[in-house]
């Protein structure tokens, strides 16, 4: 399904350009002396391009190769094959220079100083990234306002809630005004309000500053709210790359018609749909045909109280995509 990869010919250099990127790991197993070695491919033949200003969601099951890909894009991990260019640099070779152009947030791990006020960690970031004093002050003021950091800027990080800490981490990653923001599970474990604050903020940063955002997540709310483009990685391969609506279209996940009848009755039989569930007077029909025609037929044949048409949720789409993916021999991640 890699044919779905969008190759656009917009002007301007892409911020991420990946061609045939691959990563193998050699695993040693078994007891000492009788150890066997085995090569495992975590990422293979990955090719995609991200233009400046895009928000791209990276989906896939755990161990699919997402994190290896992110590590290669940030320069932490050297690729085994293929090449990557991020912000005009080769991540593996120019890691330190690249670090100034990108911001990275690990959702499950904070880079803030546990025992010190948030303000101190942010001040350190300024020095490590060598942000001039005035630029830093302006940026900090802006981020403080947008992410509502004011009330807890002087609170030791260990006393912050998870949501506050994540806002602090995002601020730390953005203080040096990176062109690319890489977020790894940024909303994991957060409450609804924190999630929405962070999502709104990311959208705003993207639209106002043109920051490109690459986000890996299991939270489909993140994807639906943020990402105009989705990449699905499974077994180390890019199995889908395109706009969210196209993801739905790409996978034959049927829409569902929920019918409330006046009274409980036998399964509705209608051409172009199949009844999959019956619960008293309510029946679920999996649509295989034009909904309008099916609805017309159902209402003609039965006494219908209410009707709802449900779009397949993304979760179902993505998981059916994983199931549909070709099994790759010897694939998987560490």
């Amino acid at each position: 399904m890699t044919s779905n990869a969008i190759i656009r010919t917009d002007p301007g250099e892409p911020i991420i350009e990946v061609v045939d990127l691959g990563r193998d790991f050699v695993l040693s197993e078994g007891p000492f002396l009788r150890r066997t070695r085995r090569t495992v491919t975590a990422v293979r033949d990955l090719t995609f391009t991200v233009r400046p200003g895009e928000i791209v969601g990276c989906l896939g099951p755990n161990g699919a190769g997402k994190s290896s890909t992110m590590k290669m894009l940030t320069g932490i991990l050297t690729p085994t094959s293929g090449r990557a260019r991020v912000a005009g640099m080769e991540p593996a070779r120019q890691r330190t220079r690249l670090a100034r152009e990108i911001g990275v947030v690990f959702g499950q791990r904070t880079t803030l100083w546990w025992d010190l006020p948030l303000r101190d960690s942010l001040a350190l970031t300024r020095h490590l990234y060598r942000v001039p004093g005035r630029a830093h002050a302006e940026r900090l003021a802006e981020l403080t306002e947008l992410l509502e950091l004011g009330p807890f800027l002087d609170t030791p990080v260990r006393q912050l809630s998870l949501g506050q800490r994540m806002r602090g981490d995002i601020t730390a990653a953005l203080l040096h005004a990176p062109r690319l923001l890489v977020l790894d599970e940024p909303t994991i474990g957060l409450d609804v309000v924190s999630k929405s604050t962070i999502r709104d903020f990311l959208l705003r940063t993207n639209s106002e500053r043109g920051t490109t955002i690459l986000i890996t997540t299991h939270d489909l709310g993140d994807v639906e709210r943020l990402c105009e483009r989705v990449m699905v990685i499974d077994h180390g391969r890019l199995v889908f790359d395109g706009a969210l609506p196209r993801l739905r279209a790409a996978v034959p996940t049927p829409r569902m018609l929920v019918v409330d009848l006046a009274s409980a009755s036998g399964e509705i039989e209608v051409t172009g749909a199949r009844t999959v569930r019956v619960e008293g007077p309510r029946q679920w029909l999996e649509l295989r045909d034009n909904p309008a025609r099916v609805i017309a037929e159902v209402t003609r044949e039965h006494e219908v109280v209410d009707l709802t048409l449900r779009e397949p949720d993304i979760e179902a789409v993505v998981s059916s995509l994983y199931r549909g993916a070709d099994p790759v021999e010897e694939a998987g991640s560490r």
């Binding site: 690990f106 791990r109 880079t111």
Partner: peptide
């Protein structure tokens, strides 16, 4: 082990 080394590698400091 804890992955904090990766966090060090994405900073522009040795």
């Amino acid at each position: 082990r804890t992955g904090s080394f990766d966090a060090m590698l994405i900073r522009p400091v040795s």
